[in-house]
Design a binder for these strands. Structure first.
Lengths: 335, 335
DNA sequence: GATCTTTTTGCAACCGGTTGCAAAATGGTT
DNA sequence: AACCATTTTGCAACCGGTTGCAAAAAGATC
């Protein structure tokens, strides 16, 4: 149906190689030949079949984009940026929705079957071993939002979740809260574990501060709301560090339901600074994560690996900062 | 690097065809042969290269998923369902982010370059001509959330936006509002035009009802908020039909900012019934669109077209219904 | 114009698979 | 055991491209 190389060659009265060279950058073709071929090609509406080409070039220009966070609105932004950044570099994302799957084997096979040039794992919950599986099968891989480690087994781009935990604790303590709560995402998520670790670490420096710990079942509004409703039936902390903005927003909804005022009765600090956190009817104090930079950096990294597959793994960590809005009391003794 | 057909054939001591047949459903291979081949294959970790296969079978099992709504949270749900439904059928979505592009040519070329088996256009703003371009190039296409027409040029799955407009008008009128506002999405979007058409149509049956019309620049929170802030500087309507939930939520935020109470001072009705609309701090009265069914139906349709490319175009329209929450006054005279 | 160098072109093999066809193997009958 | 029908297998061509190599063409030099 579509015109092929051969059709163009016949029409232009030249060899197939000549046509191929016309459509390959950096190949040797005379101006005259190029014009002849391009004329025939445009008459036939020809453009080369990338998949056939990929057989010999070993480049499909497809990047596997693997995620399991299809319920957290921040990931719409993530997909937007990723697709956009990839497209600008002539790459196409092949999307994989992992849902609750945590075994990489099937995804690895899928990516191999399609000969993707590289894989981006966009998830803050999957362990490093997940992304490593791709590397073990010879695929370039970048784990975006992955667990920071000083000896990463694959490229990691994201934030230092442990430091964010500390930052949240410091901030709450500075505001005079003495009775703190941690409401994490799924307990098994690396981001939950790291944020808790930092949070706890900082609190241990302050013997008078108490800490209670709980987990939401997922990084979703419903899970955050459900967990906070449960907490509200018992003794509550004065302020909670929630694992993520969408959990925080769920928690806010639960608190409102229970007739508790924020920040007067309970303080909340989130993490991410998703667009919604700034909406007037939410106005969440949170830790800003520089999503855009993280994603650009991830794409640059995967692109670099296309030319240098054995590039030594690195961790690219971006600093976060607290965004003051309306869900925490003021700092005490400042100024 | 990866094992190929030839490697497996050599190891098993059989012909390449035999190996190929072992991995092709419905091909004729003896049990003995199959076992021999499968043993060699698993020893080598072989699985067939789908792209090479696609060259002869003309099936890549890739579906182009094209959208331009990367700022409306409902589309995260849309992507979730689409990827999931496609994966369950052994298909993979190749994602295209259109951003503000409205010319199909580049997307068409892209999809041809990758030889996708079919294309799903998921957008309520793109005109029918956009999706038709794919059909004109011989690709199966389904336009999800596309413009309903009684003589569709491509398969359309979605809702009847005109009827939704009427429904919104009827509902507002039944509640005794006489001074109505339409705050649409982008003026050029087919969904905006259709919703307005229905809204106007119904109002024209009621001479005492007045209507004012305005448009937000995009289907996004920010655009909805900005437009409502603008409206609040002039004479306001008693109740607004907003083009979409996310616009409505933006509008709610603007109203709150202006010290206006909802529904006491201004009524709002949205469209979509996204998850967020049910959150306690939003609690939006809206028109429910059966997203899940629409997407399942879209996927079924594209799958059917793989076997029957010239299937006669049809429009599959799903009914919507009003979900009563807290942003409109009660109906008047109803019991 | 002859000779040498450089550029352009085509041939043919290859990338990793599938498939029509005919030959070989198998199985069933008598 | 001979014959025939059926199933299984391998050969070779093909899918739509790329590319190393050598031949042909073009350009440079004298």
């Amino acid at each position: 149906m579509n015109a092929t190389l051969k059709d163009v060659a016949e029409r232009a009265g030249v060899s197939r190689s000549a046509v191929s060279r016309t459509f390959t950058d950096g190949a040797s073709v005379s101006e005259k030949m190029r014009r002849k071929v391009e004329k025939a090609a445009s008459e036939l509406g020809y453009s080369p079949n990338l998949l056939a080409r990929s057989l010999t070039t070993r480049r499909t220009k497809m990047i596997g984009l693997i995620s399991n966070n299809f319920h957290n609105p921040i990931f719409l932004t993530v997909f937007d940026r990723f697709t956009d950044a990839l497209q600008q570099r002539g790459l196409r994302p092949l999307l994989v929705n992992l849902s609750d799957e945590t075994d990489p084997q099937e995804s690895v096979r899928m990516m191999r079957d399609y000969s993707v040039d590289g894989v981006i794992v966009a998830s803050s919950t999957l362990p490093p071993g997940f992304s490593k599986a791709f590397r073990d099968h010879g695929m370039p891989v970048v784990h975006t939002f992955g667990q920071f480690s000083s000896a990463p087994s694959v490229h990691v781009v994201g934030i230092d979740n442990v430091e964010c935990g500390r930052m949240a604790a410091r901030s709450l303590i500075a505001r005079g809260y003495t009775n703190l709560g941690f409401m994490g995402g799924p307990e098994a998520a690396t981001s939950t574990q790291d944020r808790l670790a930092g949070f706890t670490q900082e609190i241990e420096n302050h013997p008078h501060i108490t800490l209670s710990i709980s987990y939401a079942a997922a990084y979703s509004f419903d899970a955050g709301r459900a967990e906070m409703l449960r907490l509200a039936t018992g003794n509550m902390a004065q302020a909670y560090f929630c694992g993520d903005d969408v959990l925080s927003i769920g928690a806010l909804s639960a608190l409102k339901d229970q007739g508790l005022r924020v920040p007067a009765d309970v303080g909340i600090i989130g993490l991410n600074d998703m667009e919604m956190a700034g909406w007037e009817n939410i106005n969440l104090t949170t830790i800003h994560q520089p999503i855009r930079q993280i994603i650009n950096s991830s794409v640059e990294l995967i692109v670099a690996m296309l030319d240098e597959p054995d590039r030594y793994p690195e961790a690219r960590i971006f600093p976060c900062e607290i965004v003051e809005r309306g869900t925490l009391g003021p700092e005490i003794g400042v100024k």
